Simulated assay, not measured.
Amino acid sequence: MTRLLLVEDDPTSRGFLLAAAAALPAHVDVAGSVADARVLATRETYDAWLIDAHLPDGSGVGLLDQLRADGLRTPALAHTAAREPEALDALRAAGFALALSKPVSAGAWQAGIRRVTGADREPTCDMATPPHTEATLVWNTASALRAVGGNAGNAAALRDLFLGELPGTRDAVVRAAGAGESDAVRHAVHRLRAGCGFVGAERMDAAAADLHATPGSPDALNAFLAAVESTLAPR
């Protein structure tokens, strides 16, 4: 059976990516930080590493550099909330065999893993998330269902997990913004955006993207907080 290491700190993203990878089928170990991933990667043998580009104690590129310096040559797939082509190009240039934008469908995620592990020799395209074409919604149910292959139960479970994490993320953003820590604001909202995509939190995603671009803007922060409140409102 294929053996994979998934490195992802966001609970919503981790839940989806883990379930989709395990369904290949595969045995999947999980790490939520650079430090934990390095321990597992140097102790166990994997067919592929699936590494988030932004982690609480470093970057996916930095982790890959460390593992390569350790003499390990396991193929690596990067996943990121960034959707710009230049961001995906930079990850590939850093040594990742493939870079995928989140949210990614279960099928595209599994195809990416097969490609990286050599189980699928057919060329596939990197799956960046297309831009929104509909009016911005608080919850885009159709988008959420597409992300989980149409399984309404899985979509609901991921949404509940996302909502459970959202107040803590809001509070972290407020603290960082109050301290003038722009990098911390960007890190928090970048992590949030991946989860937004998996659960169809469209308005939250748009506000998080604006705050990521202008972390020192009071208007962007206020819009972010308003989006949090509308997302947390009873459905």
Rank of each mutant, 00 (worst) to 15 (best):
D89S: 11
A26Y: 07
H27S: 12
V61R: 13
P25E: 15
V104T: 13
R114C: 02
G62Y: 02
R68T: 09
A82H: 15
E84M: 05
G62S: 01
A90G: 11
L40H: 12
D29E: 14
G71P: 05
D36F: 01
E86C: 02
L63D: 05
L63N: 03
A37C: 04
D65S: 10
A111D: 14
H79G: 06
V39G: 02
D29V: 00
W49D: 07
W109M: 13
A90P: 11
P103Y: 10
S105I: 05
A53D: 13
E44A: 09
D70Q: 06
V28R: 14
R114F: 01
L88Y: 01
T45Q: 14
Q66M: 08
L63S: 08
A94T: 11
G60V: 09
E44V: 06
L50H: 11
A99T: 12
A37E: 08
H54R: 15
A78G: 09
L24W: 08
L50M: 13
S101H: 07
S105E: 12
A48V: 05
A108V: 09
A99P: 10
H54T: 15
L98S: 10
V104S: 02
V61Q: 12
T80I: 13
W109F: 12
L63V: 07
A31N: 13
R92Q: 14
P103I: 08
L50K: 09
W109K: 15
I51E: 05
T42Q: 14
L98V: 09
I51S: 02
A81P: 13
L50I: 15
A111G: 00
A111Y: 03
A41W: 04
L72S: 05
A81D: 10
A53C: 06
D36R: 15
G95H: 06
R68G: 02
V34P: 00
L55R: 00
L91G: 08
L100Y: 11
